[in-house]
């Protein structure tokens, strides 16, 4: 079970893997996620279902190497097996009835946004995608987005590819140029989602964001993933991960995401050391 059938580096820090997981593939819908453990002593980490193939029984994950667990995951090769892979978890993104949508992705968030864009496109909606990266070498999924979108804007912070600037400026431009949307779907770093939501609030434009707080079980058992949405406490793993971007308390979410910073930094360094030794 859970064999890695394919591994591909999308950019220096983002990797795609196709995992054999027939039961997950059978049920998965865009917007849902899985929780995996790399090995017997591993941490449980959530990753979005970036794609799935029900016939082949595979699930694609795309992850950014940010810490110990994603580092360890990236050291596995095709043919290796993961110790655990559970899902699909969370509520699927609502796409019914949407006719025209702006999909905004930032960095590795594009991997989460892509299956939704694809689904919307397949069901006949007009999709305008705006994807943003820090620089040219970090761009991922450009062709995939191009195929799933009626309009595609690529933004880089430094202007080394596409247009220079943030995703919010491209979105603003489209709106100002007269485009109207049933909904904006924004997925990326918390700050990005916060600012997209702030922008669309001005236009009264409904905005859905995908939240990624720290999780453990992913079944509603620990409450560690809780957020404040519209003044109420919600568990992202069972009530989300999609929420109304105008209702989410982003500042609190950003605080909570930094809970284990020191521990994470130390673990990441230890893991890198370990792999360096193995290589020698």
């Amino acid at each position: 079970m859970y064999q890695i059938l394919k591994k591909q580096a999308l950019n220096p820090t983002v990797t795609l893997m196709e995992i054999e997981a027939p039961l997950v593939a059978k049920k998965a819908e865009p917007g849902q996620f899985i929780i995996l453990r790399v090995d017997e002593n591993g941490e449980r980490i959530p990753l979005t279902v970036a794609d799935f193939d029900r016939e082949k029984g595979t699930v694609t994950i795309i992850f950014q190497i940010v810490g110990a667990t994603t580092e360890a995951l990236n050291h596995l090769q095709e043919g290796d097996r993961l110790s655990d892979f559970v899902g699909p978890l969370g509520v699927a993104s609502h796409t019914e009835g949407l006719k025209k949508v702006a999909v905004v992705g930032g960095g590795v968030g594009c991997a989460i946004a892509y299956p939704i864009a694809k689904k919307l496109h397949r069901q006949g909606a007009t999709v305008h995608s705006i994807i943003g990266f820090r620089s040219r070498d970090l761009v991922i999924l450009e062709n995939e987005f191009a195929q799933a979108s009626d309009k595609l804007r690529i933004m880089t912070d430094d202007g080394s590819y596409g247009a220079k600037g943030l995703v919010t400026s491209a979105l603003k431009e489209l709106i100002e140029s007269g485009e109207t949307y049933d909904e904006v779907i924004a997925i990326g770093p918390l700050v990005m989602m916060k600012f997209v939501a702030a922008l669309t609030r001005e236009y009264g434009l409904k905005t859905v964001v995908s939240m990624n707080p720290i999780m453990i079980d992913g079944t509603g058992m620990c409450g560690g993933c809780r957020l404040t949405v519209g003044g109420k406490t919600k568990f992202a793993c069972v009530d989300g991960p999609d929420f109304d971007g105008h209702e989410v308390d982003f500042d609190e979410a950003m605080e909570r995401a930094s809970m284990y910073k020191a521990f994470e930094r130390r673990r990441h360094e230890e893991t890198c050391e370990l792999f360096k030794k193995e290589v020698r």
Partner: peptide, 22 residues
């Protein structure tokens, strides 16, 4: 019965507040 209850008092989502389950 795994779903934890919270008290719904101010400050419950600060860093360092856990459910016993977590």
């Amino acid at each position: 019965a795994g779903l934890p209850r919270f008290m719904n008092i101010p400050g419950e989502n600060l860093k360092g507040v856990y459910s016993a389950n977590e």
